[in-house]
């Protein structure tokens, strides 16, 4: 784990300097294949970026963005990245309606990003940096003997999904509609992590979360792929916020996510855009 992280950091260092030399275009790095063979590079030297940025990110990005922010701060010692995770819709509301001092927004759906860009608050066009899809999770021992989406119609099973107001709930509804089933849901949770918690604690016998959340939960849950999930692929767009007090840092962070961050995001289970 530490060895892998170290090599990611080294690769990150190499890539960010390459990116900075090439003028920080927002072209996403396609693969880990761009890794220039782990050339050891001293991180944090000759670095003029400084400042503090707030990154609002969807709850499902908790693990990957925590890693990315730590790497980014290692590269730029004078930069502080404050992460704020939550349901994408709530974050978007904070930015648009409440003027939250946010520098970068990474959403778990195109529609929540659209509310921000429609308000003229996104700097440039938001770029999709990851894709995600839903997966069934059950407690590790699968006490409800859940085998697939069809079990979600059984009123005797305890089922947790996101509320339709948040992206993961909208995706769940789309999946149910595509499968032509009426799910017998017991609780509509406020975000995807809340669904996962209910399943981890064994309160819900099955839930719908993103593939990445299931992966992050590790052995605590049992993940089941289901074919209907392909009908509700979620895009993750990212954009700097135009009211940022540190626009260079915000842009550099976005570029990092699109560049070096790609390997971290892929490792978390996201599909490349």
């Amino acid at each position: 784990m530490t060895a892998r992280r170290l090599s990611i950091v080294i690769a990150a260092g190499a890539l960010i300097s390459a990116l900075m030399l090439s003028g920080c275009s927002s072209t996403p790095a396609t693969d880990e294949a761009t890794d220039p063979a782990g050339t050891p590079i001293a991180t944090g030297t000759a670095d003029e970026l400084s400042g503090t940025i707030v990154v609002d990110a969807a709850a499902s990005l908790t693990e990957s963005f925590t890693t990315i922010a730590n790497e980014f701060m290692e590269l730029h010692p004078s930069v502080t990245v404050t992460l704020n995770f939550g349901g994408s819709s709530a974050l978007a509301t904070d930015i648009v309606d409440n003027g939250a001092p946010v520098d970068v927004f990474a959403a778990a759906s195109a529609s929540t990003m659209k509310t921000v860009s429609d308000a003229g608050l996104a700097e440039g066009d938001p770029v999709v940096f990851a894709r995600n899809q839903l997966e069934i999770v059950t407690p590790a021992d699968n006490p409800g003997q859940i085998a697939g989406l069809a079990d979600f119609t059984d009123p005797d099973k305890v089922i947790a999904v996101c509320a339709v107001e948040v992206p993961c709930g909208a995706a769940a509804q789309k999946v149910f509609d595509a499968a032509g089933i009426t799910a017998s849901v017991d609780t509509y949770e406020q975000d995807v992590k809340a669904v996962l918690t209910k399943v981890e604690l064994g309160e819900a016998q099955a839930g719908l979360v993103y593939v990445t959340d299931a992966l992050a939960a590790g052995d605590q849950v049992n993940a089941i792929d289901f074919p209907e999930a392909a009908g509700a692929i979620t895009d993750y767009p990212i954009a700097p916020i135009s009211t940022s007090a540190a626009p260079e840092v915000a842009q550099a962070f976005v570029d990092y996510v699109l560049g070096d961050g790609a390997s971290v995001i892929a490792a978390a289970g996201f599909a490349a855009p």
Partner: peptide, 27 residues
């Protein structure tokens, strides 16, 4: 409430929970 009882309209979704979820789509 939302942690222990969950959120389901008419069963466990009380006014504050409905208000919170409402905020996400229709302020």
């Amino acid at each position: 409430t939302i942690t222990f009882a969950g959120s389901f309209p008419g069963v466990t979704q009380t006014l504050p929970i409905a208000a919170y979820l409402g905020l996400q789509s229709d302020p």
